[in-house]
């Protein structure tokens, strides 16, 4: 789950960069940047979940 989270973070960023570099229309660019950020937030959620410490481990 940790690896999936980080891969989603990178994938979301790739969508953002591609949108900025490749899309000429402002509307499409905004939509894809927002989509990329959403993917990143999903990835961050997974990464956070993967790092939740079980009480026994924290001791």
């Amino acid at each position: 789950m940790k690896m999936a989270g980080f891969l989603l973070l990178i994938a979301g960023w790739a969508i953002v960069v591609a949108a900025v570099a490749l899309l000429p229309s402002a509307g499409a660019r905004v939509a894809f940047v927002l989509a990329g950020v959403a993917v990143e937030l999903f990835g961050l959620g997974l990464a956070v979940r993967a790092h939740l410490v079980l009480p026994a481990e924290g001791e």
Binding site: L9, I10, A11, V33, L44
Partner: peptide, 20 residues
């Protein structure tokens, strides 16, 4: 949008890089 792209870069590039 420029500021949002910067934040997306921090989240999607800097965090995986520094963690890795």
């Amino acid at each position: 949008l420029a500021q949002l792209v910067g934040i997306a870069t921090l989240l999607g590039f800097v965090l995986p890089l520094t963690y890795g």
